[in-house]
Nucleic acid binder design. Structure first.
Length: 440
RNA sequence: CGGGGCUUGGCGCAGUCUGGUAGCGCACCUGGUUUGGGACCAGGGGGUCGCAGGUUCGAAUCCUGCAGCCCCGACCA
């Protein structure tokens, strides 16, 4: 992509309304614009990151056997009355009336709708297990939206739902998603800590929040530091996952909501106690037959009797992750994107557009990198060098490639590692080779 | 919803106390000089001061009401 053709409205100064770093940087880097409180437009650069995160989620969901679908944002009130949540949900739910005076709502989550779809289509245990998910915009009319996209009212969420014949099978479905979440966050360059979460009226041990560490996080995490060194498993979903899950869950790990100081001190040796702040980016739980009972989602079992299906639901805050990743990955100059979610891999800076040799070498490198399936943002604008450097640092692409008249004459490219700031001057071919890989 | 703060060109702000008809920096446009870390000079365009009402000869400034946004708390991916 040529920057001269792109829409990248960067801000030199910090917008007054943005208090936390990810919000400031997202506005400054031209990723989002606020529409109203907690509601954002995603500009081209921001949308690229959002899509990269969603694609990682998609790939990992597919490996775990989940199927993508797409449900609408607007749902009829009736099914929520069936489950009993229409009244329970309160003011957080945005209610809408159409021209025929029918009650609709902008979905804050999709248990009811997926349960309706499932019950209308599945009759036999032989069609189980199933795991269906979608990535769709949600709306929760938060009392106080804040922190940019981290706590928006409208947000993009991957939400998945599993259907099984009994609790034992549901537990297995839960484990698969547990593993897929560990893998997904890892691929995004994040260290996620699964912490025990409140299971509500269902009880049991099958609810976990996934929290990434960040200074500005809203949650406080208390855990055994060995949780941080647990291996992220291979995507082998035919294996017994229990040992992997136990590796994580055998140690104390809780957020402030569930924290038990006495238990923490009793179970965790002093030198292993980790207390840190974090951001909740995922939440999974098993809720048994809560919705299948209320909404009569029954299947006929092997014995010929109808039984309600056992369900679980699994959420990842896709739009929140954009902010979360920035909270975890930035420095004084701007964002420092992990390779896997970077909007572009490489920022190519032409220091002197109009200079024939410089233009030619830039074009050549741009073409070669693109041919290697790398995403390149080529700054071909007629701007001063300093402005280009600052913009590139701000938007945080993993590699910067700088070509000016000096280098063009020698056929050399200066490449900069955005993570370390380290620069080296190399020949064209070597530059391509180096920048094909994530910076160390 | 409770507490606090803010609202003046695209962005960041001053002016409000002590009413006199709007200013600064950045950005933008034109010309020139510059050109490896957010250039310089000259010229120029753009706001009636969140909205509504009131007081006054006169309101960004005083009064009343409303709205939006931000921060702290209770709630959430």
């Amino acid at each position: 992509m040529r920057l001269s053709n792109y829409f990248l409205p960067v801000l030199k100064e910090n917008p007054a309304e943005a208090q936390i770093v990810s919000h400031r940087l997202m506005l400054r880097a031209g990723m989002v614009r606020q529409s109203s409180a907690g509601i954002y437009s995603w500009l081209p650069l921001g949308l690229r990151v959002l899509n990269k995160i969603a694609d990682i989620v998609r790939q990992e969901q597919a490996l775990a056997g989940a199927l993508e679908m797409l449900m609408p944002t607007l749902q009829p009130a009736e099914i929520w009355r069936e489950s009993g949540r229409y009244d329970d949900y309160g003011k957080e739910m945005l209610r809408i009336t159409d021209r025929h005076d029918r009650d609709l709502l902008y979905g804050p989550t999709n248990e009811e709708l997926i349960t309706q779809i499932f019950r209308d289509s599945v009759r036999s245990y032989k069609e189980l297990p199933r795991n269906l998910y979608h990535i769709q915009w949600k709306f929760r009319d938060e009392i106080r939206p804040r922190f940019g996209v981290m706590r928006g009212r409208e947000f993009l969420m991957k939400d998945g739902y599993s259907f099984d014949i009994d609790e034992a099978n549901a537990r297995r479905a839960y484990q698969k998603i547990f593993v897929s979440y560990l893998r997904s966050f890892k691929r995004m360059g994040l260290q996620a800590i699964p912490v025990a979460a409140d299971t509500g009226p269902i009880g049991g041990d099958l609810s976990h929040e996934f929290i990434i560490l960040a200074e500005t996080g809203e949650s406080e995490v208390f855990c055994h530091s060995d949780v941080l060194t647990q291996p992220v498993p291979e995507a082998d979903y035919t294996a017994d996952l229990t040992p992997v899950i136990d590796g994580y869950t055998q140690h104390y790990a809780r957020s402030d909501e569930m924290h038990d100081a006495a238990k923490f001190e009793a179970e965790v040796p002093e030198d292993k106690r980790l207390t840190a702040r974090g951001i909740e980016v995922g939440h999974i739980f098993y809720f048994g037959t809560k919705y299948s009972n209320a909404m009569k989602a029954l299947v006929t079992g092997p014995n010929g009797k109808d039984v309600p299906v056992h369900m679980g639901s699994y959420g990842i805050g896709v739009s929140r992750l954009v902010g979360g990743i920035i909270e975890a990955c930035h420095d004084d100059e701007g964002i420092v994107w992990p390779w896997a979610v970077a909007p572009f891999h490489i920022g190519l800076i032409n220091l002197k557009p109009g200079d024939d040799a410089t233009d030619a070498l830039c074009e050549q490198l741009y073409q070669n990198l693109t041919d290697h399936n790398l995403d390149v943002l080529y700054d071909d604008r007629d701007e001063r060098a300093g402005a280009k450097f600052s913009t590139m640092d701000l938007i945080g692409l993993p590699w910067q490639a700088v070509i000016g008249p000096r280098g063009a004459k020698a056929g050399e490219v200066e490449i900069k590692n955005r993570v370390t700031g380290e620069k080296q001057t190399v020949a064209l071919e070597a530059a391509i080779k180096i920048m094909s890989q994530p910076p160390a």
